[in-house]
């Protein structure tokens, strides 16, 4: 079987590590993390990849449901397999429930910090546009119900440089800074199979994903 993997750049470290661990050499089509900001754009980008994957037998999506951006996607002649999690943070926590135990956390990984639309880039943009006083007000509102910046230690990148960055962000927004160990188990399971219906949504060929398909694993 010839598999194509769709991966988000935010999880590049983790997906590449999982591929190595599973000894898989599947082709990966990367999607830009910025697409998450607009559900329709992410949906169109994913649909475009699905439509163009004519030379493969199966698509493995190393993502979650991404704010239901996958709702309405149509498979072609090959199936698509998607982890049953709301987003890639829950993917790293191996379930939505594990992630929920850390309510009030703003999650980061090296991949998120590397992205050019990350929270620090937002902050710098805001400082430039609105000045110090208003920026503080905006970000106080944004982080009102957060208690900590949580760096997810996936074991797939050197933690020290990212932790230093996370600490600066936490200090700036008067939040605590924590490191939370997570795993790439969901990704390795996605790459290796089997894909039980509790943890994976298997979309058969020539099928449209509907809202009722989007139940997450707990």
């Amino acid at each position: 079987m010839k598999n194509l993997v769709i991966g988000c750049r935010t999880l590049e470290n983790e997906l590449l590590a999982a591929m190595k661990l599973c000894e898989k050499t599947y082709t990966v089509r990367w999607i830009d993390a910025r697409l998450h900001n607009v559900k329709e754009k992410l949906n169109h980008s994913l649909q475009s990849i699905i439509d163009s994957a004519q030379d493969y037998d199966r698509i493995l999506m190393a993502t979650g449901f991404c704010g239901n951006a996958i709702d309405g996607l149509k498979t072609s002649r090959i199936p698509v397999i998607i982890p049953r999690v709301d987003d890639c943070t829950s993917l790293l926590f191996n379930s939505c429930k594990n992630r929920q135990a850390h309510a009030g956390s703003y999650f980061l990984t090296e991949g998120w910090l590397r992205g050019d639309s990350n929270i620090w880039a937002e902050y710098q943009y805001s400082l430039k546009k609105y000045g110090e006083k208003l920026t503080q007000k905006i970000f106080r509102t944004m982080f009102e119900h957060y208690r900590q910046i949580a760096l997810l230690d996936t074991g797939c990148y050197p933690i020290a440089p990212s932790l230093a960055q996370a600490q600066v962000i936490a200090d700036t927004f008067s939040l605590e800074c924590a490191v939370i160990p997570v795993t790439i188990d969901f990704l390795t399971q996605l790459l290796n199979g089997p894909w039980d219906s509790e943890r994976f949504l298997t979309v058969l060929p020539n099928t449209e994903i509907t809202a009722s398909d989007l139940t997450v694993t707990c």
Partner: peptide
């Protein structure tokens, strides 16, 4: 404007405020 990429999330927050 946000969808076009011209505004950032900080702008959306400010708009809400």
């Amino acid at each position: 404007i946000f969808e076009s990429g011209e505004y950032f999330i900080a702008d959306l927050m400010f708009a809400g405020m």
